[in-house]
Design a binder for these strands. Sequence first.
DNA 1: CGCAGGTTTGAACGGCGGGTCAAGCCGTGG
DNA 2: CCACGGCTTGACCCGCCGTTCAAACCTGCG
Lengths: 209, 209
Amino acid sequence: MSSPRPRGTKDRHHEILDAAARVITERGLADTRISDVAEAAGVSPGLILYYFESKDRLLSEALTYANDQFYLRMSREIRRISSAREQLRRLVDLSVPGYLAEYGKLDEWALWIEVWVRALRDPQMAKDRELLDQRWRQSIADIVRAGQASGEFAAGDADELALRLGSLIDGLAIQVAMNDSQVTPERMHRACMEVAANLIGFELEPASA
Amino acid sequence: MSSPRPRGTKDRHHEILDAAARVITERGLADTRISDVAEAAGVSPGLILYYFESKDRLLSEALTYANDQFYLRMSREIRRISSAREQLRRLVDLSVPGYLAEYGKLDEWALWIEVWVRALRDPQMAKDRELLDQRWRQSIADIVRAGQASGEFAAGDADELALRLGSLIDGLAIQVAMNDSQVTPERMHRACMEVAANLIGFELEPASA
DNA sequence: CGCAGGTTTGAACGGCGGGTCAAGCCGTGG
DNA sequence: CCACGGCTTGACCCGCCGTTCAAACCTGCG
């Protein structure tokens, strides 16, 4: 169709990044080979190196790309909920690995852990991770502020509350993602909501028993 | 001296595991080669494979070994403190990366993250991780129970409190270990202690202002 | 002394996989 | 219809470890 701009290029980038994210999720960063990504994307190995200057760069980009996608999806979902308490509940729903049947089990969190490992030594990844995390805390803080404005939540330092709640979610999610027999998705969900209600200052149930 | 038993063998095992843990901490699991470990241990590469059947086995053992060491050190330290509240404070001190100058910065937490990555795919490591984590939660729960018995803390489900507090520590520690500019060791420490006081039910300061 | 067994060495092997490249494959514009 | 240039292929090269192994090295004992 229209041709002046390099049409396929942008698509290829995304296709490859998507494929890479999928492969990393199921095989792990360490066991991901270029040929795996190529196969998953349905192209030849050589093409991968045509679009990305090195395997390292590809994997780094894929990691931040995938986390970005997740964030955007969550963001979109939450924005259409009006009650701050329900927004918070939905955020927790989406954060508990395997809590919602419609989403994959490991997926997001497995990638996060790979990001952490990499960020320990790769300065660029460290920077990206900090930004990603900041945005995640920010979106919690926004919910808190909205709730405080509407009177659903008690007053308090929204940023500090976001840090605490977000960290609790991180810590619990790790264990759930690892299939810890003591830490089930349900238990995690309950813990998050109760601590949130306690820290932020709201009632768990609107009015029902 | 005495000779019937294989004398040097046990030492060599530990020497190599120590060396491996050190190398993993500074280079990362992915970039750790057998020759690195050999060099760090002051022996030849061949000897490593004489004591461990494969690189994989060596690294797995090194990871759990190192975490074990950390746990034991902390355990010992805490046992000699009498007040439950002070025990808890000490536990938090030791858990905040870089909070105490005398201990290394990354060290423990960097290894934890490597454990997590591995546990996602290696069933044996998954099992070991669960045990390690259970023990960690247990030691928090023990402190809580002690405090409840002595009247320092309010009543409550010690195991559930331990899970929540432990997870919060995990989640915060990750960010501190990554040098997140927003999450300083001091901020993490404060957050842990305040949430602990709130959840568990005790006063932060004994009596002073 | 010299043998025996466990220990230690380091050179050599082999496979794996990232990266390169020369050659084909198109679609487009002349 | 041809020539150009971006896209795509897959075979190939090459360095890097994990692993193996034969030989050397101790140390204690007969």
